[in-house]
């Protein structure tokens, strides 16, 4: 049964400055989406080759059309610091290969503290 865990002070979680906690043997990080200011709780291990995922970045997904057309879409991804693989911030799925999925967790803020359900 997963429980809510007090991870960090909300003020301490900023874009590029995640909070990391170890919960029951798993390293879980809380990252700040610089676009929406939302918090993302995600396992700190890339399912591809094991990088510490929370050392990567939180970015707005780019889509495009052939012919050199690029546009930003309303979708946030966590980008691995090693090989640049992207993982959907809501589902944890790698859009390019759904066989690769990282665990993401519910997160909420109470009284200035960040809680993660894991």
């Amino acid at each position: 049964m997963s429980e809510w865990h007090d991870i960090a002070a909300e003020a301490d979680v900023a874009p590029g400055a995640p909070a990391i906690a170890r919960i029951e043997g798993r390293e879980i990080g809380v990252m700040r989406d610089p676009r929406t200011n939302d918090l993302i709780a995600i396992r700190n291990r890339c399912p591809h080759s094991g990088a510490k995922l929370c050392l990567g970045s939180v970015e707005q997904r780019i889509e495009g059309e052939p012919g050199g057309h690029y546009h930003l879409v309303d979708r946030t991804v966590v980008v691995c610091p090693w090989h640049g693989w992207e993982f959907d911030a809501s589902s944890g799925v790698c859009p390019e290969d759904e066989n690769f999925r990282v665990a993401v967790y519910p997160v909420r803020v109470e009284h200035g503290r960040v809680f993660v359900q894991a």
Binding site: E63, G64, P66, G67, H69, W85, C94, E96, D97
Partner: peptide, 15 residues
Amino acid sequence: NWRGLRDDTPWLDEP
């Protein structure tokens, strides 16, 4: 490479 470099060619919507 496509998995990690897709931002440059985001129109590639499958392997």
